[in-house]
Design a protein around this nucleic acid. Sequence first.
DNA 1: ATATTATATATAGATGATCGATATATGTCA
DNA 2: TGACATATATCGATCATCTATATATAATAT
Lengths: 113, 113
Amino acid sequence: MKDKSIGGGNTTMLILRLIENEDMYGYQMIDALEKKSNHVFALKAGTLYPILHGLEQQEMITAYDGVSEEGRQRRYYQITKKGRKLLDEKKKEWETYASAIKNVMGGISYAEV
Amino acid sequence: MKDKSIGGGNTTMLILRLIENEDMYGYQMIDALEKKSNHVFALKAGTLYPILHGLEQQEMITAYDGVSEEGRQRRYYQITKKGRKLLDEKKKEWETYASAIKNVMGGISYAEV
DNA sequence: ATATTATATATAGATGATCGATATATGTCA
DNA sequence: TGACATATATCGATCATCTATATATAATAT
């Protein structure tokens, strides 16, 4: 995984999280992710837009043309009910994954099954 | 990232961690990883061996032929000083990554820079 | 003694996620 | 007017990992 790359198949989860409470347009997501991650993640436009289009096709999000606070035409994305369900699943997967890494790295061992 | 796949570019870190305190042979690593991860990770032989050969070439590990506790010929792998340094780096990268995900998912925000 | 199965090591090709490069259009600022 | 930042978009390349496959040995069952 390269420096500042998001990797690990978590990009979709992060995008859905960003628009969980607020509709956003593409570039706004890139900025928000950079800030919230404290400059660890630098999501590329070339990664973002194909994912947004895919999520739209799967009805995880819907898109509409709107006007930004500065009065400019922007393409906004809104999470759907289906998308919230997917976000929940991805969250659980991440927790399982992170906890497994912790177990291996910390050396916690379980009874053999 | 598929179910039970390790992904995220963390396989090398996990392998190095496994042999940090004890030399191991390939299949032993697969078993150890499955147990320590509480059955979350199922490392595939087809993933493991190419990584081991790569780490050997980069002098992160050394290999030698030994005899297992059951008296069988096995190919053992031992971490080198260089490998321990790499493990430390990978650990730090993981911590940075996991903490960034946490920040985004939990909604912690930082002052804009 | 022989067949079957589990263990072990290994490699090649396929897949999938993400990046880098590039294209295009619009709005802002000097 | 020209340069630059913002914004959306697509395509090909790259990299990690998986699947499938091959091969060998040892253990177990017949």
